[in-house]
Nucleic acid binder design. Sequence first.
DNA 1: CTGAAAGCGCTTACAG
DNA 2: CTGAAAGCGCTTACAG
Lengths: 333, 333
Amino acid sequence: MTKYTIKDIARETGYSISTVSRVLNNKSEGMTNETRQKILQTVAKLNYQPNQFARGLITKKSNVLGLMVPNILNPYFAQICRGAEDEAARQGYSLIICNSDDNPEKEKRYIRLLKERQVDGMLLASMNRLSAENEFYLTDSQIPFVLVDRGNDQNIAPGVSIDNLQGGYLAGNHLLELGHRNIACMTGPSGISNSEKRLQGFLMAMKEKGVQIPFHHIIDGNYDMDSAYSEAKRFLQTSDVTAIFTHNDLMACGVYEAANELGIAIPDQLSVIGFDDIPFCNVLSPKLTTIRQDTYKMGQESVNLLVKQIEKEPTESLFCEPTLVIRSSTANI
Amino acid sequence: MTKYTIKDIARETGYSISTVSRVLNNKSEGMTNETRQKILQTVAKLNYQPNQFARGLITKKSNVLGLMVPNILNPYFAQICRGAEDEAARQGYSLIICNSDDNPEKEKRYIRLLKERQVDGMLLASMNRLSAENEFYLTDSQIPFVLVDRGNDQNIAPGVSIDNLQGGYLAGNHLLELGHRNIACMTGPSGISNSEKRLQGFLMAMKEKGVQIPFHHIIDGNYDMDSAYSEAKRFLQTSDVTAIFTHNDLMACGVYEAANELGIAIPDQLSVIGFDDIPFCNVLSPKLTTIRQDTYKMGQESVNLLVKQIEKEPTESLFCEPTLVIRSSTANI
DNA sequence: CTGAAAGCGCTTACAG
DNA sequence: CTGAAAGCGCTTACAG
């Protein structure tokens, strides 16, 4: 094995380590081209890679970013992650991934851990807004962070998210226009702001048309497929709703499975509209009508925002517009 | 803001930095309990976190692992990632994620990058086996790595994978037992060993029963949904096969979509069997018959293997058994 | 049981 | 245009 240091390059080329360092960091203005070339050649020849521990100790930069999501198994977050990783790589950063399961204790541990890893910044798809404790910790640590998908409405920190109120409104309105009046709604875990907003927007649409939604038509979901399946199975057995709005596509998948087993035909007997537009919407049968987010782009933009913060440039939160994508899971009553 | 160093703790408590360091690293045997307590209290009070750059410079450990997958958007790899991240966190490691798109150039860049980040080891779901160049680089760098899902058959390095030959055989045999004789097979990208093995096992089963598979029934797939969709649409339009074996579930999704659009009923007119058993198998309609891998566990075990290597313990490659999961997408002809 | 000192491998003023 | 030296914040022999 061959573990070279900057000293080896200096000895090999006959220059000082200062000069080598300058070449490596592109601070070689005014330097002879010959010097540069010779050093670069030796670096290539020995396949030398600088030790980031030593470098980071001085520069205080790791070129690593943290990404906290509830669960990478949700294709929505996988797509956020893909967008973020692509953009991070493009800008010279690596991405550490953390799955919080929307568990506040885990979130807290991961945030501390990421700081200990000396990440230059964090992308947080955190429960609700941040807890006061986490917020204080982050602010006190002076570590740049951006809120992705959640919590951006409070404007505590820069973030990228969509107008969830509008999204919920679009979903509700679509169902109303198809003539539905007897509608259910399956939410995300309690305390998560985007789901609260989606519900609010949905109810706004209902109110506009004078449609009443009884309390028990608002089903507590968990943003995941399995619990949506069991909740839907329980609910649909005794209910006569003609449509359901699930606050993400994963839960719509669970509803499909339940409806299927109960012999309820989508969309003939039950219209279903989801949220997110994950890639699987098109392979569901019937294809899922949903509220679309440009998820990949949101991942990218959140990295852009974070990098700007790291570089002390001015930043501004990004709000994307959700759009209605009509497929085959919703129909006239 | 408050950025404390070990010196601050030393000053605050009146001890030397050596003593503080010992307490922090649990090397405080023989130390007065009072000393320990006092230091720990001050650490907690100031919310001190050691600088990992300084620590790593000496210990040569980052407590970070790298995970390279083709694409985190494939739920199979998301599950590998989840299993790996959970286990890594349990063992005190963080995980950097890289998406290679099965592009050898990207793989190479990421491997170099991960080393530069001073990761303690790498999990590689790499194209085929490693390229000779990458293999040399890794070996020469003395950096521990394990092969996940791919390339393990060559035994170049410790790895965790399944018996792909057996998996392909199980799939082929299942279709034969249902009476199918006119069968197609959609592979992964060329040069990826697990797909080659799956094909081999499949053909073995065919041969056993004296069934001929014409060349053009072996469709070049790409392990992704979109290309599977277009390939399937092209193929199914003119073909009279009664069954198709796709080398992963994502491609089965593409086949579903194509069949749907062509009005071909699954399983009545076309039996479909996939590979992996991603969570979406159950929401497809009909539910997808597939060859199951215990993917989450494979993610966990690959971290276990890697950590053992890092700690210089003896390791042994892990081979898991694939199993046939019969659902509703395959039927008697 | 605890401390003073060396050193990990870099970057960056400071000189010349 | 280039070098010698200080220092980043730790850990770890070496002493006592």
